[in-house]
Design a protein around this nucleic acid. Structure first.
Length: 878
RNA sequence: GGGAGGUUAGCUCAGCUGGUUCAGAGCACCUGCCUUACAAGCAGGGGGUCACUGGUUCGAAUCCAGUACUUCCCA
């Protein structure tokens, strides 16, 4: 044997080939006259590290892009990172705190300097990790949402929307994250049921000893109460018209208002109204002209205005103030309760509704074409059912709050001077506007005050498919690469990202940003929990690649991940991938160990084996192609996997394997290498490293690479050999089973007789057919016979009868019982088909090929019944 | 409260337009093998009333309705 190890070791191979591909610039794309195939990466957070979700998502993209490249398209996969303003700022703040620096002690510029330093140091690590996975991105195009080109696009778009009147600044209720101290969009708030307590609090009615009870989960907001509301039809409260109540412990006298908004059957039917801290209360406040008392600071502590526990955290105060109320006798009862609590997607802090002045995009003004495109499948979703979710959100779309009270991000391009607002792409342009507006030519930039806020990260992400091609400037690039072919992303960001990209696409290019959207599922652990850092249930992605190889990991991620379906990650899957690599490796070792003999002609056996394998490969190519067309990537992979493992290794290689110390016919060896090379091409998109390695091991003199080889194409061909060998495989398996059942060793040989029928006769006329059976079943002889009286063990394959002339005592009783059982089954089977075929409506209604198939089933079934009956007769006569 | 899915082998899932010889795969399990490519392997095997009830149909795991359980999204 050769010196090649029996175990495939990926580490060295993978690094070497990745470098080779980079050196050859295979990933680089420039526009030419070929058809473009474009994917833009969902940009990971610039400070992120590779996790399971990234691996799944990026493996899928790599499979698609590699296949397109092999199919002769100009494949372009654009990588990049997202500045992730809130997440990154939080990380930087934490890093500074560890160094003893408080953000509040820094100026904006000082803070940003630290942030950029951090970005330069840790940013992009994730891109290097993607290379380990084999991602064939055009790295020369690496973009960052905060680099110059992408930032320019953001400012342009902001100005454009403002000028079109589709962007505005307004004071309204927002979702406030007291930890990050910024506003959030609706989509960044995650709601969940949480355990809490429902306090029933007594509010005294002014000028009487009576009181009314209000149920609330938030007693700490009581200092902000400026009214109590009840339903106008509620019989319990009719006597309170025109009355006032006293806010407990606070002493504020507030009116009882009557509004149909109040639900009569919740709690006591009376509602405390805190306009500053609840969206609905705010609306009530506006309607009834109520006073607004803001009881919180921006970090969620009590404000001076609240008058109780100033500076203390809202949750601490909830308990303290409830205790105060209780000891003062204002609590009627406390119930355990589950309510929906909104938390910040990034910081997990409980979101506080808050009145605030922010910038918004008028989404209704831009949503139309993006909704229509998905409705009509112009943008096609895989899987389709995500359309419903998308439609629902788009039809109920709310304005998008895009300003954030952070420093890391694109600063809002708006400048203020007195009452005036100047929105412009840069300071000079804003100044110009200001000079014109005020008529004061001596106005200086320092007279203007720029908005302090930055923009939501997604306000740059939604431009990504355009901005990565510098599409707001370079129309030629955009023309060539855009719309992109497919977007691969998780369904969890369908609103945050996918829908907004669709809107941006139509708004600024007049075209959709992508033809297809492939939604991946979430990677979960075996207990179905989403993988997360907090839970610590996520395996270390890089460790996995180290342990199992990138190809093994890619196989594991993909072998079990239907579009949109969640992937329950199990290390077993990756193990299977590694084992598959080893299988391929050893198939290569075997072939490389063979010595070709150019004087030796190809035997009939070699010829039929080769023809069969080629035909089978052809059907696999077809199936793979069909699966790809509908993004059934997992199915395509499994198809290739079983073809390689079963057909190629277990059957084909065993068929043509030369005897010990024998040489193989050169023609057979060449054909085998050719087919194995084609197999490498077919598998390459999934497992790029090992296929490249084997490709070169098989063809040491070849200069070209598997990565740019032609992806196999389906060709029409005859099925005669294919069908014959498929029958032979079943027959051989049954002979092996017969051995196993009767305790025979694999070297115990015996003759086999095939009953002569048109089918078996046809098989026997195929050169090499008999030899395949002899070799694979380990037979002494294999012949056709019309003689029904041969003594031995009989069995049926498809509808053919075979008798093994093996001289062992058989358990007649057991054998009879089995045959009898089989006969009963067959009789039932035939009866059901006969019924079907005698049915007028079936024969007239069903398509011709279905009827033909049924007829074949019937005749085969009848054939089998006859065979079984004669077998039974024979057994009985023994 | 509104909506969308799911329920197929012990586990995780395929099963596409209703029709291949009577439901497949991987893992797990059982039996036999250190057969000179691979024990990360080879050969063979067992295991399913396709959640339940009804309907449509010549024919239903597949389509429809209802029930139960379950997951998710929105409020």
């Amino acid at each position: 044997m050769t010196e090649i190890s029996a175990r495939y070791s990926p580490a060295e191979t993978e690094a070497r080939w990745y470098q080779h591909w980079m050196d050859k610039k295979y990933f680089a794309s420039t526009p030419d006259d070929r058809e473009a195939f474009t994917i833009v990466i969902p940009p990971p957070n610039v400070t992120g590290v590779l996790h399971m979700g990234h691996m799944l998502n990026n493996t899928i993209q790599d499979v698609l892009i590699r296949k397109a490249r092999m199919q002769g398209k100009n494949a372009c996969w654009v990588p990049g990172t997202d500045h992730a303003s809130i997440a990154t700022e939080a990380k930087v703040v934490k890093m500074l705190r560890e160094r003893g620096i408080k953000k509040s002690d820094l100026t904006r510029d000082e803070f940003l300097k630290y942030a950029w330093e951090w970005k330069e140091e840790y940013g992009g690590i994730i891109l290097q990790q993607l290379q380990k996975l084999g991602a064939s991105c055009d790295w020369d195009r690496t973009a960052f949402t905060m680099d110059e080109v992408r930032s320019e696009a953001v400012y342009k778009v902001f100005v454009d929307l403002y000028e079109k009147g589709k962007l505005y600044r307004r004071k309204r209720m927002v979702n406030w994250d007291p930890e990050a101290k910024t506003v959030l969009s609706n989509e960044e708030v995650i709601y969940g049921l949480e355990n809490s307590r429902l306090f029933h609090v007594k509010y005294a009615i002014e000028g009487s000893d009576d009181y009314l009870v209000i149920a609330t989960t938030r007693p700490e907001t009581i200092p902000g109460d400026t009214a109590v509301a009840v339903h106008p039809d509620d019989p319990r409260y009719q006597h309170l018209k025109g009355k006032k109540v006293i806010v407990p412990l606070i002493g504020r006298v507030v009116p009882v208002i009557f509004d149909e908004y109040v639900t009569m059957d919740f709690g006591t039917g009376a509602l405390k109204v805190t306009p500053a801290h609840d969206v609905n209360d705010f609306d009530l406040g506006v309607k009834h002209k109520l006073e607004t008392v803001d009881v919180f600071n921006d970090d969620g502590t009590m404000s001076a205005e609240a008058g109780i526990y100033p500076g203390e955290d809202r949750f601490v105060v909830r308990k303290k103030f409830a205790d105060d109320l209780e000891s003062a006798g204002f609590i009627e009862k406390i119930e355990d309760y589950k309510n929906n609590v909104g938390r910040s997607e990034r910081t997990n802090a409980v979101v506080e509704p808050r009145l605030s002045l922010q910038w918004y995009v008028d989404m209704k003004a831009i949503a139309g074409p993006a909704l229509a495109a998905v409705e009509s499948d112009d943008i096609e979703f895989f899987p389709k059912n995500q359309k419903n979710l998308y439609r629902h959100w788009m039809e109920n779309i709310r304005d998008w709050c895009i300003s954030r009270q952070l420093w890391w991000g694109h600063r809002v391009p708006a400048w203020y001077l007195g009452e005036d607002t100047f929105v412009a792409e840069n300071e000079e342009l804003a100044l110009e506007q200001a000079r014109v507006k005020t008529g004061n030519a001596n106005l200086e930039a320092s007279d203007l005050r720029q908005d302090e806020d930055v923009l939501d990260t997604w306000f740059s992400s939604w431009l990504w498919p355009i901005s990565v091609f510098d599409g707001f400037n370079d129309k030629k690039q955009l023309e060539y690469y855009y719309p992109t072919n497919v977007l691969v992303t998780g369904w969890d960001i369908i609103f945050l990202w996918v829908a907004r990209m669709a809107m941006a696409g139509f708004e600024w290019t007049g075209k959709k940003p992508f033809h297809h959207v492939y939604f991946t599922g979430m990677v979960r652990d075996k207990q179905r929990r989403k993988m997360s850092k907090q839970l610590g249930n996520s395996p270390d992605a890089l460790k996995l690649i180290e342990d199992y190889g990138a190809d093994g990991v890619r196989f594991g991620m993909l072998s079990c991940s239907p579009a949109g379906g969640d992937l329950l990650f199990d290390e077993k899957l990756v193990e299977q991938g590694r084992n598959f690599c080893n299988k391929l490796w050893n198939a290569m070792r075997l072939i490389k160990g063979w010595e070709g003999d150019s004087d030796k002609g190809m035997s009939d056996l070699d010829a039929i084996a080769t023809q069969w394998l080629e035909a089978k490969f052809n059907t696999v190519v077809k199936e793979v192609e069909d699966n790809f067309a509908s993004y059934r990537l997992s199915e395509a992979l499994i198809t290739i996997y079983s073809f390689i493992w079963d057909d190629f290794c277990s059957w084909y290689l065993e068929m043509i394997k030369p005897g010990q110390d024998e040489k193989i016919a050169a023609g057979t060896l060449d054909k085998t290498i050719a087919i194995f090379s084609s197999i490498c091409s077919l598998l390459h998109p999934y497992m790029p490293f090992i296929t490249e390695e084997i490709w070169h091991q098989l063809n040491p003199e070849k200069q070209d690479d598997c990565i740019v080889s032609a992806f196999p194409i389906y060709k029409e061909g005859s099925d005669v050999v294919l069908n014959a060998v498929e029958h032979a495989k079943k027959l051989i398996t049954q002979v092996r089973e017969l051995r196993s059942k009767n305790g025979l060793k694999s070297r115990d040989s015996f003759p086999l007789i095939a009953k002569k029928t048109p089918n078996t006769e046809t098989y026997f006329t195929l050169p090499g057919y008999r030899e395949v059976c002899l070799k694979m079943a380990g037979l002494e002889d294999f012949s056709l016979s019309t003689d029904d009286n041969a003594v031995g063990i009989s069995f049926i394959t498809d509808a053919e009868n075979y008798t093994a002339l093996v001289n062992i005592s058989i358990d007649v009783e057991k054998e009879l019982e089995e045959k009898q059982k089989e006969l009963t089954h067959q009789l039932g089977f035939v009866a059901s088909i006969e019924k079907k075929l005698s049915n007028e409506r079936f024969v007239s209604g069903a398509p011709a090929d279905v009827i033909d198939r049924e007829k074949k089933k019937l005749s085969d079934g009848k054939e089998r019944i006859q065979l079984l009956q004669s077998e039974i007769e024979k057994l009985k006569s023994l």
